[in-house]
Design a protein around this nucleic acid. Structure first.
Length: 318
DNA sequence: AACGGACCCAACCGCAACTCG
DNA sequence: TCGAGTTGCGGTTGGGTCCGT
């Protein structure tokens, strides 16, 4: 433990930690023995009243620490492991509505803790904002989320669902409680007349420029295209040729050569191209506000940069 | 193999809200 | 109504691990 952290802890005079010295409270990582004590106590006495629980269980921890350990780690229904695509989609949609209200968002992801969701946001999403050299709260980044990464994520969900069912035309990605929430919340934009399409539609912020009544995102498993519906307008792009309907940005099938020769990151020039493209596109995007869309993975991020470079190239050659 | 930077996530903090005597 | 104790939330930190050089 470094000096700074020690200092912070020693000057901790709020709450109940001012008795740390005399009570010899432990801090830092939990031991297996401590975990057992906590689990055993809660299994027989239940949770709650964390300060007395800590004392009665023989733990030299604050009540806060016990509560945190139980809720974020030891609780039997805590889900561990990677955040699924559907969960990512849900997190980003809910964040667009509620902002950093992690506990509220966590309520819709069974087994996921607010801490985990918060960590996901800060490590994954903010990382990509940094790579784009823009603020995570900036309009530019929000629009990137909305028009580029979110549709890509939907495509990936669609693709994985198709793979898992073995059918490209009857697939559905609705398999989890999270998905059910998505569908029940956002299915107002379903196009029930088109049996060849699977649909996911999304609401946006309370200011609402994209609403269930006016918009939807449609992924066709047969064509591989992603369509965006806002009002009566439909944007669809094939081979990146149509840039006239950028209102919702349009995605194309991914190129196969988006990685460099080393399978690594693309060049600084390409990143700059993306910035240039975005400046061009920004003029055509309505001043939508705080809705966030997702990043599927680093691979997706650089894939999108490549795609946008193609858009820029196509646009400049016309 | 060694090193250093980047990343992940458990655990901490302060503060506000809530509960209860 | 008030105040002490408790709980819950969002922001932050830093140790451990991973990965590239």
């Amino acid at each position: 433990m470094d000096d700074k952290r020690s200092l912070m802890m020693n000057k901790n005079i709020g709450d109940f930690e001012n008795k740390d010295e005399e009570m010899d409270l432990r801090r830092g990582p939990w031991t297996v023995e401590e975990d057992f004590k906590l689990i055993n106590y809660i299994s027989t006495h239940g949770e709650g009243r964390w300060n007395s629980l800590s004392r009665c269980a023989g733990l030299k921890r604050t009540g806060k620490s016990c509560r945190l350990r139980w809720l974020n780690y030891l609780r039997p229904d805590v889900r561990r492991g990677n955040i699924t695509l559907e969960e990512q989609l849900l997190i980003l949609e809910l964040h667009s509505r509620w902002g950093n209200r992690w506990s509220k968002i966590a309520q819709y992801l069974p087994g996921r803790t607010d801490n985990e969701i918060k960590n996901y946001w800060r490590t994954r999403v903010q990382k990509h904002a940094k790579q784009l050299r823009c603020d995570v709260n900036s309009q530019q980044f929000k629009d990137t989320m909305r028009y580029l990464w979110m549709p890509r994520l939907i495509e990936r969900i669609q693709a994985s669902a198709s793979t898992s069912t073995g059918s490209a035309t009857t697939s559905s990605c609705v398999t989890t409680p999270s998905d059910q929430f998505l569908m029940t919340s956002f299915d107002d934009g379903l196009d029930n007349n088109n049996n060849n399409m699977d649909h996911l539609s999304f609401m946006s912020n309370p200011n609402g420029y994209v609403s269930p009544e006016t918009s939807s995102v449609v992924v066709s498993p047969t064509s591989g295209l992603t369509e965006f519906h806002i009002g009566s307008e439909v944007g669809k792009v094939e081979n990146n040729q149509d840039q006239s309907l950028v209102g919702p940005q349009i995605m194309s099938p991914p190129p196969q050569n988006y990685l460099d020769d080393n399978g690594g990151l693309l060049s600084e020039d390409l990143t700059q191209s993306y910035h240039n493209w975005f400046e061009n596109v920004n003029g055509m995007i309505p001043p939508y506000s705080d809705s966030f869309w997702n990043i599927g993975s680093d691979e997706d991020f650089w894939l999108l940069l490549q795609q946008q470079q193609q858009l820029v190239n196509n646009g400049s050659s016309e």
